[in-house]
Computed example of a mutant assay.
Amino acid sequence: MTTLKSKLQEDLTASIKARDELRSATLRLTLSAITKEEVAGTSARVLSDDEVQKVIAREAKKRREAAEAFAQGGRAEQAEREKAEGVILAEYLPKQLSDDELTAIVTQAVEEARAAGAEGPRAMGAVMKIVNPKVAGLAEGGRVAAVVKKLLAG
């Protein structure tokens, strides 16, 4: 069985042969982040595919944040590069939920939380507890929290 990490390594080799500088640089950085995670802590270990996905998601989030920062700083070229790297990383992550799908899941969770008696500020935590396991890896936390706030306010 091919692991996600070995797929990244194979794709890196292919992108180097194809002289695809953007893809090879992105994959090289991601693989080094995975290696760093593997040797962190008391003993070295091999990450599971789920853990590798978390590292990729973290790297993708860094690219999004850097792209925004570069765009705000008027550095369009760097912003485009960060976005392009983010697109490459997204290929290795589960498809993100659409706004409609996310809203449907949160709406259901809000109803569950209210049925369980969660009201006011505490409702946010109760709803997040219900939503998080359902959307793990499929939607970013900030996006989820924004939808939860919007629906609780509504």
Rank of each mutant, 00 (worst) to 15 (best):
27 L>E: 06
139 A>C: 10
71 A>H: 12
121 P>E: 01
120 G>H: 03
38 E>N: 00
92 Y>H: 06
57 A>M: 01
82 E>M: 14
72 Q>S: 09
36 K>A: 11
139 A>R: 09
117 G>C: 10
125 G>P: 00
134 K>C: 07
52 V>R: 00
145 A>P: 01
37 E>P: 00
105 I>M: 10
108 Q>D: 14
45 R>V: 11
140 E>C: 11
27 L>I: 10
138 L>M: 15
116 A>V: 03
80 E>A: 15
131 V>P: 07
135 V>I: 09
93 L>H: 08
52 V>A: 02
137 G>M: 11
86 G>N: 08
42 T>H: 12
82 E>H: 14
73 G>T: 02
135 V>M: 06
1 M>Y: 00
21 E>C: 12
42 T>R: 04
129 K>C: 00
19 R>F: 15
92 Y>R: 03
98 S>Y: 14
70 F>Q: 06
126 A>P: 07
41 G>I: 01
131 V>I: 04
90 A>F: 12
87 V>N: 07
148 V>S: 15
43 S>I: 12
58 R>C: 00
62 K>R: 11
122 R>N: 02
8 L>W: 01
64 R>L: 14
83 K>I: 13
87 V>D: 13
146 A>H: 13
92 Y>E: 05
129 K>W: 01
30 T>E: 01
107 T>N: 04
17 K>Y: 07
101 E>A: 13
32 S>H: 07
128 M>Q: 00
96 Q>A: 15
99 D>N: 14
124 M>Q: 01
4 L>T: 00
11 D>N: 07
41 G>R: 02
100 D>V: 15
138 L>V: 15
34 I>H: 02
36 K>Q: 05
63 R>N: 08
114 R>W: 10
146 A>P: 03
104 A>E: 04
108 Q>A: 11
142 G>K: 08
25 A>K: 04
106 V>Y: 08
9 Q>L: 05
140 E>L: 11
30 T>K: 01
154 G>Q: 12
47 L>I: 02
15 S>V: 09
120 G>K: 07
141 G>P: 00
112 E>V: 09
6 S>D: 11
146 A>E: 14
91 E>Q: 12
84 A>F: 13
56 I>N: 02
123 A>F: 03
85 E>T: 04
14 A>C: 07
61 K>M: 10
33 A>T: 01
73 G>L: 03
102 L>V: 04
60 A>L: 04
25 A>E: 11
29 L>H: 02
122 R>M: 04
109 A>D: 06
18 A>K: 15
131 V>D: 05
61 K>Q: 09
79 A>E: 08
71 A>F: 10
23 R>A: 14
9 Q>A: 12
107 T>V: 03
33 A>M: 08
41 G>Y: 07
24 S>E: 06
98 S>Q: 11
67 A>R: 09
95 K>Y: 14
54 K>F: 00
96 Q>V: 14
43 S>H: 04
39 V>T: 06
61 K>T: 10
34 I>R: 01
14 A>P: 12
56 I>S: 01
69 A>Q: 12
102 L>Q: 14
92 Y>P: 04
78 Q>H: 11
90 A>S: 13
84 A>R: 13
46 V>C: 03
93 L>W: 10
5 K>I: 07
1 M>Q: 08
49 D>Y: 00
69 A>G: 08
57 A>S: 04
111 E>L: 12
69 A>T: 10
104 A>Y: 03
74 G>C: 09
35 T>D: 08
50 D>R: 10
132 N>K: 08
24 S>D: 07
11 D>K: 03
140 E>D: 14
